[in-house]
Structure formats: C-alpha cells, structure tokens
Design a protein around this nucleic acid. Sequence first.
DNA 1: TTGTAAGCGTTATCAG
DNA 2: CTGATAACGCTTACAA
Lengths: 341, 341
Amino acid sequence: MTDNDADSSSSGNRKPSATIYDIARELGLSPSTVSRALTKPGRVSEKTATRIHKVAADLGYRSNPMARALPTGRTRMLGLVVSDLTNPVFFRLVRGAEQACHELGYTLVFAESQESAEAEHGTLDRLLPAVDGVILAAARLADEDISRIAGIKDVVLINRRIGDMAAIVPDIESGIAQAVSHLADLGHRAIAYVGGPARSWMSRTRGDLIFTHAVAHGMTYAEIGPNDPTREGGERALRRVRASGATAILTYNDIMAIGLMRAYQRDGAALPDEVSVIGFDDIFGADFATPALSTVRSPLDEIGAEAVRLLVHGLDGRDATPPVELATELVVRESTARPPA
Amino acid sequence: MTDNDADSSSSGNRKPSATIYDIARELGLSPSTVSRALTKPGRVSEKTATRIHKVAADLGYRSNPMARALPTGRTRMLGLVVSDLTNPVFFRLVRGAEQACHELGYTLVFAESQESAEAEHGTLDRLLPAVDGVILAAARLADEDISRIAGIKDVVLINRRIGDMAAIVPDIESGIAQAVSHLADLGHRAIAYVGGPARSWMSRTRGDLIFTHAVAHGMTYAEIGPNDPTREGGERALRRVRASGATAILTYNDIMAIGLMRAYQRDGAALPDEVSVIGFDDIFGADFATPALSTVRSPLDEIGAEAVRLLVHGLDGRDATPPVELATELVVRESTARPPA
DNA sequence: TTGTAAGCGTTATCAG
DNA sequence: CTGATAACGCTTACAA
C-alpha cells in the first residue's frame, strides 16, 4: 500500500497531520519545549524557538484545537444562535461577529433555534459543549431557556435585556425619535405599530418608545400584534392596519414592512401617497423595494462585533466592559410622504 | 438554594459539567461501561443501560465533543466556506446545510474566504483542523488553494468542478434553455451576458451555455466581463451593456441584475420596455425589486443539504454517491418583455 | 532554558 | 456483559 494520495475518492488514507511530537523528535527536543515555543513567546531560547518554528512550517504543523481544548478547557470557539437563518437581518450580524472572531483568534459556530422546544434537544445542545460562550440573537427564545444556557456557558444577548445579563442593544430611541418627528413633520396625526412576536423584548421596546414619542407629538397610537416577524406576518396584518385608520405605519422589522407594502399594493393602494411606512433594521433589499423603504437603521455589523468582544472579554476574566451604546438612525427613502388630504 | 447562579458576572465559577466518571462513580460502574451505554446501543445490558441513562439525565450530562474527538479523530463538525457572507445567495445554502447537519448530528462551522491570500493564513487555517470536512462555496478561491485544502480534509465543492472532486452542481442547462427560449419567444435577437469574476467556474459555464443556446436560436451573443459579482459590479457594467446593443441581458447573478437595473433606471430607462434582464439564483429580494426580477432559480437549499450529505457519506467511507443533478428553472416575473420596436 | 510526567474526557483493545 | 488500561495531542506544574 503505497502512499496514494491522488486517490480519486478524497476520503480514506490521508496522512495524519504533524504533531508537536513529530517536531520534537525531528529536533531531538521534548514536546513540552515545542509546545512552549509555539504558544508562550519568550519562554524558550531564541535559537531553539526559531528552529522549532522552521520545522513546524516545513511539516505544515497546525495545532489541534481539540487536543488543546482538553487540558485548557477552552475551545476558542463561540456560538452564535439566531432564530431564523433565513432572515437577512442576521447576515450583517454574522458578518460583524465573524470578523471580530477572526481578529481575536476565535472560530464562530452557528445554530438556529426556531423555538425553545427545539433548543432543548436540538443543535444547541450539541453546540454548547463545544464553545466557550454563546451570543444569543434569538428573539423567540424564552427567558427560562436563556437562563438555563447562561447557567452552562457565558452568554451575551443581542437586542434584548434580561436582568443584568451582558447584552448589546443599540440606542433605539435615537432612531425612533427621528422617525416619529419625521412623520409628524410630514403632517401625520395617527401612527400604528405593527409588532413582532409576543416574546420579543425588542418588539415591546420599540412599541413602547414609539408610543411615548407619538404621544409627545400629539399623535394617536395604535398597536397591532403580535405578528410573525416575516413577510407573511406583514401581509396578514393589512386588514387590522387599515382598520386602525392610521396614516403612518411602523413595523417591527423591514421584512414585515415589505410584506405590508406588498399587501397594500395588491389591494390597489398607491404608496406612499395613501400610507407611509417605516421599517426597522435596514436589511439587504430595503433600498430596492418599491417604494424604497424608509427605515430605522441598526448598526448590525458593529452589534455583532461588539457582542463577540464583550463575550471574550468576559471569558478572559476581565471586567465586562459596559456595553457601548450604538446609535440607530432613520434612513429616509421613498416610503414616507405627506398623509392624504 | 445556596446555588448562587444569579451571580452578576456570568463568567467565573461555573460548576464543571458532569463526565462519564461522575456517572460511573454514582453507579459503581466503570467509565468504559458508561461510555458504551451512551454510544453503542446493545453492547450493555438493558438494565444497566437504563440506570446509566437515568443518572446521565439527572446529572445533566453532555458528552464533551473535544474529548471524544481525540481518540476517534472525528470532530463531527463540518466547515462551510463562502466567499462573501454578505451575499444573500448563501442564505439558502447555509439553511440547507445547517438542516442536513442537524439531521446527521453534525455541527456547522463557517468561514468567509474573501481571497486566496486570506485563505492562507486566515480563518480557514484555524477552521481546518477543527472539522472533519469542508464544503467550499467560494467561487473566488483558486484551484490550487482548493487542492491544498483537499490534501488536508475531505472536500465537497458547490457550483464548481475541479477534476473529479466531489461536487454538487445543479443542472444549469435546464434553466438556461428555458431563459433563452423565453427571450427568443418574446422576440429578442441580441443577448448579452454580464459575467462574474474571472476565476469563477460557474460564471464561465453559464456564459458558455447561454452562448450555445443563443446561437441555436439564431441570436446574437455578447459577453461583458469579468465583473465583480456585486450590485456595484452590475451598475458599473451599464455602459458596456448599452454599447453591446443587446435588448436582453442575463447577468451572472441576481445582485448584479438588480444593480444593472438600478443603473438603467437612474439613466432614465423604462424597464422592462427598453431592455429585458434575467438574473441567476433567485435570491431573497429578487421578487420585490422593481421590476420584479425574472431569474433562473437554483435549488440552493437542496444544494447545501446535498453537499453535506455527500460529505458525511464520504467521511463514513461509503462510496461517494454520484452527485444528484438538481434542476434549475426559469422564474418569470416582470423584468422581461418584448424588445422595443 | 529545557525535560519529565501527570492529566484533560473519551474511545478502543483486550482480558476476565 | 463488564472492567482495566492504553492511547489521542496538548498544556502545565515541577524538577533538573
């Protein structure tokens, strides 16, 4: 059996990758010296260190993260849990998180947690033992599930607060204030908020803030929901939205806004002349919807990155830096206009 | 309850999770028996097996994947490498892959490989030792880089062929045939293809196929590219597209199509009256662009899932099932019409 | 500065 | 059917 690596079936007999033992043997050193040279700069003589690095490179040595994780208890992997992989909101989040991980030398692992029941036996349970900590961007997960997870691993929440758990939440009020005064300036007097899932902390918070600002502007406020945070959710809300008599609608997120607009248009309504709509997040595609969607933009990438930093900060035992308040802002596009006369 | 779980800083003194030793001690058994009971059904007496499972549940035991990976050499993790996390094409791919992983008891890990240089030192190198195999959906990765990776771990390619490496590629011809005859039926005589990155196997393949079918229909064919596979790439192609004199445009992907349409519209062109455009993939948002984009749809979810199945199939030493040919199909929406008279 | 040896949680081999 | 015992690749006291 000669070393046939060029075998067509890629699986099978691949030569095992080099270990610190191979390097040690090659150099007549002890494995521990090699280990030190590779991980603890300065704790090994300059000379041997360079020799070791050279051989390591020659052998194409890569440290085995599993083997390293055993004695240290640290895998240098982080989990990111989202509620729906298909929701484009998460992609900028993922992006930011992935980049921060990269900078910090961590690897990102994903999971989708459709419902809390799923969380019990699903991917999450397989994921948890493999990571050092978890970032939770799963609006639909129940508080109890999250507490359970927090009892096992370090957790950072995104867009949600539970007690004093570490969390990254942008300053939503800034964007909402802008949105509501924008609407007021246009002459709207009646606002409706199409909410998301009942469980969603963020949906409630947005609703409350919109309410406060609407009232401050002497506007009327109606809340419609809970709804699925999906396009269909937005579409299905149409009748109740119409019934509210509002001329300006804010939805829990952009997808719902897009769904709602589609439903209006199918109904023969002219947008934005008949109603103004504003979404949240500024997801991919918001700008090429028709009309282009005005929205309260969240700095999703930074949120993802900050969550990672906060998490590894905590992991390193450093004091959890108080979460930076990231600003949100209104992006005015074409879905808002004066109310009908 | 002295169990002070409600400690404000979540990090710190978490109680170490139970091991098979804990279970063994509790029951006066040997660890190996516990291990068997938990992994090899039937190789342990019914009675002890149930006792073990009970205690395991009571103790909240989760097997440690790192520890398991060491003796077995298998981490039960799969890597998914994409070239741009921000590209919505990947959403559905990821979705499908994640689900298949879930079913097979694997965990999915992600990496973004912007360029091959990056692949050398970046996330990929940290990822590789941690996974059993990799799915490559990175059109921009050079063949050599891929070969290098294939020399280390099992690889399955997506939307690309290199030699006889395992790959999942849908039957693009079916969709292209439909697209081109659709255009021919509408009366178009001149087609242009706005290609993607020079390195992209898929871009070339699509171009070649379009060419063949265009000629077969007695149409004129022009190729424009290479271009960035982004919205900007599509926008920037406008002048050259116009210069081609084509009345029907196919672009390498949907985002470029959307970019191109925007550029046309900014230029004052009426779509689809002036030109028809067709994209590829049917990404999120294609249907709410204006005009709603006609596109050659790929079964991205299934592609992702099939890639995973093929990969773990190979991992298990079973003969790599010949990749199923998944069909593509034209989705006609509003971006195609008769050419101007 | 370097080497020795123990141990991390599991699986696998071999006896009993 | 069950129990010792030796790996797996790495880190980390503790010694030299």
